[in-house]
C-alpha cells in the first residue's frame, strides 16, 4: 500500500493541493467540502426532522424536485472529498474511521432514496426511515470531524509528530 500512497502523494495534483501557496488550493477545497456537507447533510437532516416533528410534513409532490438537487450536493461533496483524499491518501486510508464514514455516507444516500420514493411520493409517515437517516448524517459529520483527531500517519514518509 505504501507504494501506492507514495505514488499518489508524489503526483503533481496531490503536491499542488498540499503545498500551493494560495487559498485556492487546499483551503478552497476544504471550504467546498464543508459547503457540500452543509447542503447534503443539512438538507437531509431538515427533511428528516420535518418528517419526525411536523403534523403535515410536506404538501404532496412538493419535494419531488428536491432530490436531484441533493444529488448535486452529493457530487460537490464527493468531488471535493476526492481531492482531499488525493492530497492526503495515507492520512485517510490508514484510519479505520474513514471507512466508517464512507459506509455511513453510502447507507445514508440509500436511505435518502428510500425516503424520496416511499415517504414523500406516497405521503407515508416514514418516521423510522427519518430517524435512521438523521442518525446516519450525524455519524457522518461526527466521523468526518474526528478524522482530524484520530489519524496515525499523515503522509507516507512523515508521521504526525505527536502520534
Amino acid at each position: 500500500m505504501d507504494a501506492f500512497f507514495a505514488y499518489l502523494e508524489n503526483s503533481a495534483l496531490s503536491t499542488w493541493i498540499r503545498e500551493a501557496d494560495t487559498v485556492f488550493a487546499f483551503q478552497a477545497i476544504l471550504v467546498l467540502h464543508t459547503l457540500g456537507m452543509g447542503l447534503l447533510a443539512g438538507g437531509n437532516a431538515a427533511i428528516d426532522l420535518q418528517i419526525l416533528r411536523a403534523r403535515r410534513p410536506f404538501a404532496p409532490g412538493a419535494f419531488e424536485r428536491w432530490f436531484p438537487v441533493l444529488w448535486g450536493s452529493f457530487a460537490l461533496s464527493a468531488m471535493s472529498g476526492l481531492l482531499l483524499l488525493i492530497a492526503y491518501p495515507t492520512k485517510a486510508l490508514t484510519n479505520p474511521l474513514f471507512y466508517v464514514k464512507l459506509a455511513c455516507v453510502a447507507l445514508a444516500m440509500w436511505v435518502m432514496q428510500l425516503i424520496s420514493r416511499k415517504v414523500l411520493k406516497e405521503s407515508a409517515r416514514g418516521k423510522y426511515l427519518a430517524t435512521v437517516s438523521l442518525l446516519l448524517w450525524i455519524a457522518v459529520i461526527g466521523a468526518g470531524r474526528l478524522l482530524a483527531y484520530t489519524y496515525t500517519r499523515l503522509l507516507v514518509h512523515f508521521s504526525h509528530p505527536g502520534m
Binding site: 447542503l39 447534503l40 447533510a41 443539512g42 438538507g43 437532516a45 431538515a46 448524517w137 459529520i141
Partner: peptide, 9 residues
C-alpha cells in the same frame, strides 16, 4: 458542523 449544515441546508 451539524448546526451549520441545518442552516446552509
Amino acid at each position: 458542523f451539524l448546526g451549520l449544515s441545518l442552516l446552509i441546508g
